[in-house]
């Protein structure tokens, strides 16, 4: 169980990385924390010809408050962000979800943007990004663009990122002063892929629920407030719309069941912590 051969480029600057990606095209992969990519390399599921290590690039190791949002560079590790002072206040949803991302031993190296790039439909960070209405910042030699999270994820490990593009950063709008947030996840064991994960954002007038692990990507939807009797039907519709499937660990019906129950629970919790 050893990786197939590849070249390795330790990129010191963004330009160097972008140039390498431009030249290698589909044969290159960006290496950041490596916590999703290395298992695939070891199992020889992935066999890129070139790995571009972007972790030495200083410009990507920045976390910044920018216009009411948190901008997280591609070099930021999950553990580092978890330890950021004030995270729970600015980004309560992210703060609640990060402990569910793998284990301490993988968060120490795994990056937030790496998880977004990997686009696993059960992953917590893409779910939070979608729930908060965040953005993905892509860059290639041709230029930069910004994609809304909900448009970025297109399926199982599929995104709108073009082959020579890399994620430069993600931005997450800060929690609105009047809003409440809640996150819950059900898996077989602690640290496993979520069978269903729910993230809720509730303010005085609106409620938004994002669900991971059910559809082939994280999906968010505006729903009636928890106090509104219409929520029941809306949740039911939402649960069915995700086209859940059976797998080894859970049935489609179970996933829909969790969307209804867990979904309501996080919406209520978010509404309660707002008050």
């Amino acid at each position: 169980m050893k990786p197939a051969p590849f070249d390795y480029l330790r990129a010191e600057t963004l330009e160097e990385a972008l140039e390498a990606l431009h030249q290698a095209g589909t044969e290159a992969r960006v290496l950041a924390g490596g916590q999703s990519l290395l298992p695939m390399l070891n199992m020889r599921l992935a066999r890129p010809a070139l790995l571009v290590d972007i972790m030495p690039i200083a410009a990507l190791r920045e976390v910044a408050d920018a216009a009411g949002a948190l901008r997280i560079g591609a070099g930021i590790r999950q553990a580092a962000l978890q330890a950021r002072p004030g995270l729970a206040r600015q980004q309560p949803l992210l703060a609640a979800a990060l402990p569910w991302v793998g284990h301490a031993q993988t968060r120490s190296r795994g990056t937030l943007c790496g998880s977004v790039a990997h686009a696993d439909p059960s992953a917590e960070i893409p779910l939070v990004l979608v729930a908060m209405g965040g953005h993905v910042h892509l860059r290639s030699r041709r230029g930069a663009r910004r994609v809304a999270a909900e448009e970025f994820f297109t399926g199982m490990m599929a995104t709108t990122r073009a082959e020579e593009e890399m994620i430069e950063a993600i931005t997450l709008p800060h929690a609105a002063p009047d809003s409440g947030h809640a996150f819950r996840e059900v898996g077989r064991r602690h640290g496993d892929f979520a069978i269903t994960a729910c993230a809720a954002v509730v303010d005085a007038r609106s409620a938004r629920l994002a669900v991971g692990g059910v559809a082939d990507r994280p999906v968010a939807r505006a729903l009636p407030l928890p106090s509104d009797p219409a929520l029941e039907d809306a949740l039911e519709q939402f649960a069915w719309s995700l086209e859940a499937r059976d797998d080894l660990h859970a049935t489609a019906a179970y996933r829909r069941h969790l969307v209804r129950r867990l979904g309501r629970a996080v919406l209520e919790e978010a509404a309660a912590c707002r008050a």
């Binding site: 199992m43 199982m156 080894l248």
Partner: peptide, 13 residues
């Protein structure tokens, strides 16, 4: 055998 989750999602994609 080793990435069944991938298959289910890939089919839908």
């Amino acid at each position: 055998s080793i990435a069944g989750r991938l298959l289910d999602g890939a089919a839908r994609l």
